[in-house]
Structures are given as structure tokens and as C-alpha cells.
Computed example of a mutant assay.
Amino acid sequence: MGNGLITSNGAFHARQRRLVQPAFHHRRLVGYTETLARAAEAHVASWRDGDHVELHRALMDLTFATAAEVMFSARSTRPAEDTPVARMMADINAGILPQALLPAPLTRVPLPANRRYRRAIGELHNVIDETVSRYRVHGPEHDDLLYALTAARDEDGQAMPDAQIRDEVVNLMPAGAETTATVLAWAFHHIARDPDVERRLADEVAEVRGDRPPRHADLDRLTYTQRVLRETARLHPLALIMRRSNAPAVVAGIPVPPGVEFVVSHYAIHRDARLYDDPLAFRPERWLAPQSAALPKGAYAPFGSGARKCIGDHFAWLSMTVVVATVLRRHRLVPEPGHAPREVPAAHPHLDRLPMTVRPRRARPGGRGVRGLP
């Protein structure tokens, strides 16, 4: 994983965060919206009435392919097919946790999982190095995220070394794509089981978008969509993050010396009845302004908080909103009868399977847009 934003610490982490931040500037997010909308539309357009889709897997394919296009302008030649870069990132993402937890000698044993992980890391490094070298010599071919990293300069006008850009890419993209896909899968799970939620979402998307692709300016108007996603991320955040005390402190009345490792569970915090009424219930209305404004600092942090908050959190919300709006404009997703998804323990708990049947969404009588079938 190198020494990117996820793995670095201290003054170096703070410097790198300042260098990477412009890649997620509002102006760039506006441009990324078109990329996200195009990729989501191509993926969803391949679904047909009656198709049986394992939705979590399909969303993983979509988010990895989208991340590859945003980062490298790597677009597939066929709408439903992911790119080689997307497959590399998926293999890396699958191997990160085992590589981190296994004793170092075991990670060097030539097991299939180890070989697959190392091969993907090597291939992705080659792609990044070749692209950065080309951008340095010939200038940008596309205004993508990788070019934003090559153009970044610190206070002294120094650029990031090529090896550091490589580390930042390997840190940012695989984890971000998986997090987005997992929250989206849980969102569609809740939407499919509540006809009122599904109908309100479809009506809002039809009112705001009509039959055109989503634009960045639409996102602030998709208020109910954002409440549904916020509630999903409350119930299904990253389970655990780790922090280390840098100075003496008192936590919950307990003196803590420097160097102590903490495990913080947003999963537990988000389900605390002292903070949320009926905390296990899926209730998007709890994110109406007066209720959400009353929460204390730290009560809601699906992407972390403070100096270590995920630098791509705005991109993640943007991506999730675009995907939900794109799917609901075209389709209804019907759960497989009798199937109850199980939560799989992981750094970001995900569903074991999410089989769905695709159904069309018919036009709203007498008006533009679409409306859910009864």
C-alpha cells in the first residue's frame, strides 16, 4: 500500500492531504459528475426486464469501473464490461485486509491469493507510472484525477514524486470504490423493502431529472435521496477504525498515556439509543434539519472525522446519489422471494448476497418522468 493518505502519519500525512485535496475541489467534482452519470447509465442500460442481478457484485463492478475512469480516463469499450484497471483495483481491494492481518512471512508464500494480489499491485503500478510519465512529457490527455495529482504543488512549488503519486492512487481508489458499492447495496436493500420510500425516491428523481442525465446542480435538489443515503450510511458505516494517542489524555474518565492504540466503532456509535431514537430502524426522516442538527459532534461520522476524515467523502456522496437516481429512473429492483441477506463481518460489513429481479419503470400518466409500478 506504500505511504499514501491511509497509511501515512504525522506531518507527512498533513502535507500530502494538502497536496491531494485539490483533486477533490468543487470544480473537479462538477466535471466528475458527467463521468459518473455516463458510466452509471451505460451499466444500468444493460439490464433487461426479468434479469436476475446479484446487485452487490454488480455495484462493485460499476464503482470500480467508474473509479478507473475518473482516475485514469479508462473507459470500457463495451457498456457492461469493466476495464483492466478496474479488475486490478478489485483484486487489490480483496487482498488488502488479509495482507494487513497475516504475519509477514505468510504474505510471501506463493498462495493463489497472494500471487493475485501482488500481480494486481504490479500491474497497477505499471499503469500509473506509464500514465504519469506520459502526462509529465506530453501534458494531460484528459482532466482526470491522476492529472490533478501530477499538477499538485506544495508551498515551495515542489511536485509529488512519481512513486508518491502511485502510493496515493493505490490508497485512494480501491477502498473508496468498495465503500461506495457497499453503502449503495445496503441502500437498495432498504429501498426495495419499503414501497413508500421507493415511490418517494422515484417521484423525486422524475421531478428533478426528467429523462435527461443528472447534472451536478441537481444534487442539492435530490433532498429525499440524500436523506435515504445518510440513513443507510448511519446503519452501515465502517465498523472499526484505529487511532493512536499522541499525547496524554483522559478518555471516558480513564487516563491514557501516549502510544495507546484505540479501536473506534462508528457502527456502535451510530446505533446508540442515547443518540438516535429507535436506532435499529431505517428512518430517513430522522435527517430532517431540526433532528439532525441536534446531534452532538462525532455522533455521525460514516467517513471518519477530523484530520483523518476520508478526503473523498464528497465524491462518495456524489457517486452514490448519481447511481441511485440513474437506477430508479429506469428500473424497479424486486428482492428474491424468501431470501434474507446476512451481514458479513468485515472492516465495512456488507451483504452476503443481494439477488434482485429487474423490472421496468413505466411513464407517469399525463406527465414527464417515471413512476414506480404498484
Results as ranks from 00 to 15, higher is better:
242 M>D: 15
63 T>K: 02
148 A>N: 05
20 V>A: 01
83 T>W: 11
368 R>D: 10
114 N>P: 01
60 M>Q: 15
281 A>I: 06
131 T>R: 15
217 A>S: 14
57 R>S: 09
152 A>H: 13
35 T>Y: 10
246 N>Y: 13
24 F>T: 00
103 P>A: 05
25 H>S: 14
199 R>H: 04
54 E>A: 07
140 P>C: 14
188 F>I: 01
362 R>L: 12
16 Q>N: 05
172 L>G: 00
93 N>D: 05
316 A>K: 01
202 A>F: 05
266 H>Q: 15
32 Y>G: 01
266 H>Y: 10
329 R>N: 08
341 P>L: 08
69 E>V: 04
201 L>N: 06
264 V>F: 00
271 R>N: 04
303 F>D: 15
169 V>C: 02
241 I>C: 13
254 I>G: 02
143 D>K: 10
264 V>G: 09
205 V>C: 08
204 E>N: 09
126 N>I: 14
82 D>C: 09
102 L>K: 02
371 R>V: 10
341 P>I: 12
30 V>S: 03
223 T>P: 11
153 R>T: 13
79 P>K: 04
80 A>Q: 11
31 G>Y: 14
232 T>K: 02
246 N>T: 15
324 V>H: 05
292 S>F: 10
119 R>G: 02
369 G>Q: 00
334 V>R: 08
23 A>N: 07
66 T>Q: 08
141 E>P: 14
191 I>S: 00
209 R>M: 15
275 L>T: 02
168 E>T: 02
140 P>V: 09
147 Y>E: 03
63 T>N: 10
364 R>S: 06
228 V>G: 05
281 A>N: 06
7 T>P: 05
254 I>T: 07
211 D>A: 10
28 R>S: 05
354 L>E: 02
107 T>S: 00
205 V>N: 06
348 H>G: 05
106 L>C: 05
59 L>Y: 00
368 R>H: 10
183 V>G: 13
315 F>S: 01
203 D>S: 10
204 E>Y: 03
218 D>A: 08
191 I>Q: 03
29 L>G: 11
76 S>G: 14
176 G>W: 10
129 D>P: 06
313 D>K: 08
180 T>L: 03
211 D>C: 11
34 E>I: 11
296 P>G: 13
235 L>F: 01
372 G>A: 11
289 A>M: 11
122 G>C: 02
104 A>P: 09
183 V>H: 13
240 L>S: 12
13 H>F: 13
188 F>S: 05
220 D>L: 12
257 P>Q: 12
353 R>D: 05
338 G>M: 09
126 N>C: 14
14 A>S: 09
103 P>N: 04
291 Q>E: 15
292 S>Q: 10
290 P>W: 07
65 A>N: 11
48 R>H: 15
308 R>S: 09
124 L>G: 00
189 H>T: 12
222 L>K: 08
240 L>W: 14
241 I>T: 15
219 L>S: 12
352 D>H: 00
130 E>Y: 07
82 D>A: 12
56 H>E: 13
196 D>N: 12
212 R>G: 13
53 V>D: 04
5 L>K: 04
327 V>N: 06
163 A>D: 11
369 G>E: 00
83 T>L: 06
159 A>W: 12
